[in-house]
């Protein structure tokens, strides 16, 4: 692994981290607003996070 690749990997992780963080934060907001919909929000959050994570990993391995 050479330097550009390592930097690319870092960027991917930062991007995915920001994305998943935003999803988590928004989900927290939504849960605070509508505690009765916690289950549904959690499921949607996990799916969205998993999709980003999948792309992140794919990019990470491709790098």
């Amino acid at each position: 692994m050479d330097i550009p690749r390592i930097i690319g990997g870092g960027l991917i992780v930062i991007g995915a981290g920001i994305g998943i963080g935003r999803i988590g934060g928004s989900a927290m907001d939504a849960i605070a607003r509508q505690p009765e919909a916690t289950g549904k929000i959690q499921t949607a959050m996990l799916i969205a996070a998993a999709l980003i994570e999948g792309i992140g990993f794919a990019a990470l391995f491709a790098s």
Partner: peptide, 10 residues
């Protein structure tokens, strides 16, 4: 492919 990678990498 994403399914494969996600589980494997995690």
């Amino acid at each position: 492919f994403a399914l494969t990678m996600r589980l494997y990498a995690n």
